[in-house]
């Protein structure tokens, strides 16, 4: 038996839609299951008085992004260029960038 092209297309699309729906449900289940994990993480943050995520360890101003100042990224010379890739990924903290 030969299927019509539209039947094959609609079947494929239905499989893709179902897969996407399945992934959305997977996301929901994972978020629900990760509540105890987040409770443990926040307990560590509270206990150690941490202020930042450990995303980039190459430069001090991107390791503790919220604690940085405006001069550290420029190192010791006003003309020194940004040489850490993470510096090109993140923006400055809003409380430093905003005008008084």
């Amino acid at each position: 038996m030969e299927f019509r092209r539209s039947t094959i297309y609609m079947g494929t699309t239905a499989i893709l839609v179902l897969s996407l729906t399945g992934l959305m449900l997977h996301a929901k289940a994972k978020v629900r299951a990760s509540a105890p994990l987040f409770a443990r993480k926040t307990a560590v943050v509270r206990q150690l008085e941490l202020t930042d995520l450990c995303l980039f360890t190459e430069a001090t101003y991107t390791r503790h992004l919220s604690m940085t100042d405006l001069s550290t990224p420029f190192q010791d010379a006003p003309l020194s260029l940004e040489h850490f890739p993470s510096g090109g990924l993140v923006g400055p903290p809003p409380h430093l960038a905003q005008k008084p």
């Binding site: 202020t51 930042d52 995520l53 992004l65 919220s66 090109g88 990924l89 993140v90 923006g91 903290p93 809003p94 409380h95």
Partner: peptide
């Protein structure tokens, strides 16, 4: 401000 820092992380201007 600490939280806003990470909310602005990977902003479109970076």
């Amino acid at each position: 401000e600490i939280q806003r820092t990470y909310d602005a992380l990977f902003g479109w201007r970076s």
